[in-house]
Deep mutational scan, measured.
Amino acid sequence: MKGKVVSYLAAKKYGFIQGDDGESYFLHFSELLDKKDEGKLVKGSMVHFDPTPTPKGLAAKAISLPLE
Rank of each mutant, 00 (worst) to 15 (best):
M1V: 06
M1R: 06
M1F: 06
K2G: 10
G3A: 02
G3Y: 01
K4Y: 14
K4H: 13
K4E: 08
K4C: 13
V5R: 01
V5L: 07
V5F: 02
V6G: 05
V6P: 02
S7Q: 11
L9A: 11
L9Y: 15
A10L: 09
A11K: 12
K12E: 07
K12C: 11
K13H: 10
Y14P: 00
Y14R: 05
G15L: 03
F16Q: 04
F16H: 04
F16D: 02
I17M: 02
Q18R: 14
Q18I: 14
D21I: 02
D21M: 03
G22P: 01
G22E: 04
E23S: 09
S24H: 11
S24P: 06
S24M: 15
Y25A: 00
Y25R: 00
F26D: 02
F26N: 02
L27G: 01
L27E: 00
H28V: 06
F29N: 04
S30I: 09
S30Q: 08
S30M: 10
E31H: 07
E31A: 12
E31N: 11
E31C: 07
L32H: 02
L32K: 00
L33A: 07
L33E: 06
D34P: 03
D34Q: 07
K35T: 08
K35M: 08
K35H: 09
K35D: 06
K35Y: 09
D37R: 05
D37G: 06
K40Y: 09
K40A: 07
K40I: 05
L41M: 05
L41H: 01
L41K: 01
V42G: 07
V42E: 08
K43F: 11
K43W: 10
G44Q: 04
G44N: 07
M46S: 11
V47L: 05
H48Y: 15
H48V: 14
H48D: 07
H48T: 14
F49P: 00
F49A: 00
F49C: 02
D50N: 14
T52G: 07
T52P: 02
P53W: 15
P53R: 14
P53N: 13
P53S: 14
T54R: 06
T54H: 08
P55K: 11
P55I: 10
G57W: 04
G57Q: 03
G57L: 03
L58W: 12
A59E: 07
A60C: 03
A62W: 08
I63W: 00
I63A: 05
S64G: 08
S64F: 13
S64N: 08
S64T: 12
L65F: 14
L67A: 13
L67C: 12
E68M: 13
